[in-house]
Every structure is written in C-alpha cells, then in structure tokens.
Nucleic acid binder design. Sequence first.
DNA 1: CCACGGATTGGCT
DNA 2: GCCAATCCGTGGA
Length: 204
Amino acid sequence: MKSGLKNKKLGKNFYKADVLSVAKSLLGKILVKKNGRRFIAGKIVEVEAYDGDTDQAAHSYGGVTTRNEIMFDEGGYLYVYLSYGVHFCCNVVTGVRNKGTAVLIRAVEPVEGIEAMCKNRFGKKVVSEKEMLNLTSGPGKVCKAFGIEKKHSGFDLTGDKIFILNSPLGENEKIASSKRIGITKSAHLLWRFFIKSNPYLSRK
DNA sequence: CCACGGATTGGCT
DNA sequence: GCCAATCCGTGGA
C-alpha cells in the first residue's frame, strides 16, 4: 500500500487532455494531500465530468464568474466550492485554457493517513467498520476527510501540497458509467464514471 | 437589495 | 424515504 506513494506524480499534460478522457483516466489514481510531515492519500474510485460548453449542470456554463474562474484556467488546478452551504467538493480542472471543464472527485478508497482522515471526519482516530466504509464515500466526505476547504481552490496539482499519483487499475477492476448524481440540468449525460463494485462508491 | 436554489449529508420517521 | 441545515453566486426589482 505505502509503495503507492512512491509512484510518479501526474504532470501538466495529463490534465490538459479533454475532460471525459481525464475523468476515466483518474480512476485508480492516488489523491494525496500533505498533512504536516505525513500524507493523507486515497485511491480515486468515483468521478463526474463537467463541461461548461454544452453541459448546463456545470458551474462554468454561462461564462466566467468570481467563483468559477479557476475552471477556465488550463488543466492541473484544484477547484473547490461550497455545496448547499454545508460541504466542500473538490474538482480537478482539465483541458486547455478557457475550456471551463473539470472533474468532480466523488469518492476515494482510503490508502494512507487513515487515522488522520477518521479524526477529520468523526473526531476520533479509531472507527467502526461501518464508519470506515462511510469515511470517503461521497464528494463532501472526501473533502472533510482530507481537510480540503475553499482556501485550497486554485492550488496547483503539480505542486507538493495536493497532487495525484499515477497508479494502474487492478486486473479485475472494471470502469462503469451512469448518470450524474444530484443534478437536474443535462441530467441524461452518462458522465459519472466509477470502478465497478468498489465498496467506497457513494452509490451502487 | 432581496429572494432563490443548489455537483450533499446525516438524522429522524 | 424524507427533510433540514446553511452559505453564497446569481438574477431580477
């Protein structure tokens, strides 16, 4: 498991590809956040793509605003927003400059720094098996566990505070797609991608 | 200036 | 399964 953190950090070119390719490619990769001298890390198991050009559900649909301007920068930045006034959700900006595309990270499988995640989520280091499965199985939960907040919006993912490591999908891990969750506009698009049968998905 | 609604979660019925 | 919590970007008066 810890060997996962020795893998290579994804570079600028990875993020500059089109949003649907990046969304699918992100599955199985390791999201890492520096936490003091240690790291919090989780394998990405569920994502959603958003494209401001055609997709009315995207925050970037309708053009640049103060909230979404980072989505219009080139790929490789973090976009964090407050959902329902309660939870933070984190996105990876993709594509070339002015595209307005991003990938929402909806769920990860805990890899390292699990005690720190539990502390962030539940206020204690040791949790039940049920709580373990509930630790990072949703976009708001991932941000809470990782300690990602609004102030992290705009962070460069090729830097050393928050980044993503390359990692291959397991042999028996299959990618599936579905409609995106919790939206009403452009709801028909099958732009949610996830690793089939992974126990940390936000929904089956 | 004010009203409205949302890329969610967790607790209660 | 239903619904409140709670902030802020956006759009209309």
